[in-house]
């Protein structure tokens, strides 16, 4: 079979003429045109603007990894495994006295709603970019001077993407690093905020990310209140940025509490 495509939702019976291909898999006339009502206090999934999604976390999920974690923000599901530290083997990175972090961020073939993701040709551009971002985010939380001449490998896979993948991946990877017993200054937690013109929404879904004007993702070490990464796409009004930052910080605080509780529980269990 050649030229296979993902079938789209059928247009309503009466306006079959206006069919058009929309590769995002959205209904041509259905949900795409439905504006989320900004004035109302509840969102599409029933949350208030400053509510986070339902969170589930677990550690030690991958059998032979040094450390691992699984984090789920409702439909965004991420798994991470940490291997190492092991000796630097040359390869593509230059020799370094200090420890190095290698991040590998990937999407499962079925992670995106737009149908199957082609994974045969190796890493895609977005995965490369997210790998780099993730490495930068985590690097400053690790006590690299304690890991002389060694490498720590962090592998993250997004099993299902529904907004905030980078934030969830950061949280998940930081938990996996802690589970692996890598010496850290602090956990890194991340959280995103979407801006829909008038209203700020915490922890946006993919649909909200797309319909809004901008998305801001902040990665933070809550203990020292230091920001390790600020990643923003789209526009935010100048005076709203501070408000968004504060909202992100609050969100990170909530996530941090859950991470801490989970990690503590996992150590007592052992």
């Amino acid at each position: 079979m050649n030229n296979c495509y993902k079938p789209l939702a059928a247009p309503a019976q009466n306006d079959a003429k206006s069919k058009r291909r929309d590769r995002d898999g959205k209904a041509p006339n259905g949900t795409a045109t439905k504006e989320p009502s900004l004035a109302s206090t509840t969102r599409e999934d029933g949350r208030a603007p400053y509510d986070m999604r339902q969170v589930y976390m677990d550690v030690g999920v991958v059998a032979h990894a040094t450390g691992s974690a699984y984090v789920e923000f409702n439909h965004t599901k991420v798994i991470c495994a940490v291997y190492g530290p092991h000796a630097q083997t040359g390869g593509d990175s230059a020799f370094s006295e200090e420890g190095q972090l290698q991040c590998d961020f990937s999407y499962a073939p079925f992670a995106m709603p737009g149908g199957r993701r082609e994974t045969r040709g190796g890493k895609k551009d977005d995965e490369r970019e997210l790998s780099t971002l993730l490495r930068q985010t985590l690097e400053s939380s690790i006590q690299v001077h304690r890991l002389t001449k060694s490498v720590v490998g962090v592998h993250v896979m997004v099993l299902q993407a529904d907004g905030g993948e980078l934030a969830v991946a950061t949280t998940c990877a930081s938990m996996a690093l802690a589970d692996a017993g890598i010496e850290l200054y602090d956990l890194v937690t991340a959280c995103s905020v979407g801006y829909c013109g008038t209203q700020m929404v915490l922890d946006p879904t993919k649909e909200e990310e797309k319909s809004g004007a901008g998305v801001m993702t902040i990665a933070l070490m809550p203990g020292s209140q230091q920001v390790t990464q600020w990643w923003q796409e789209g526009r935010f009004d100048g005076q709203k940025v501070a408000e968004a930052l504060e909202l992100c910080t609050d969100g990170c605080g909530c996530v941090h509490k859950m991470m801490e509780a989970k990690l503590k529980a996992s150590t007592t269990k052992k």
């Binding site: 079979m1 030229n3 495509y5 079938p7 991958v62 079925f110 490998g153």
Partner: peptide, 29 residues
Amino acid sequence: SLQVGHPSENTPMCGMLDVEVKLTPLSSS
């Protein structure tokens, strides 16, 4: 995930099953 297409001429009426197993470095070193 599902896709649609035309059955090939050698196998009329037949759909297709495409299986791809991914062994990730995440699952094992």
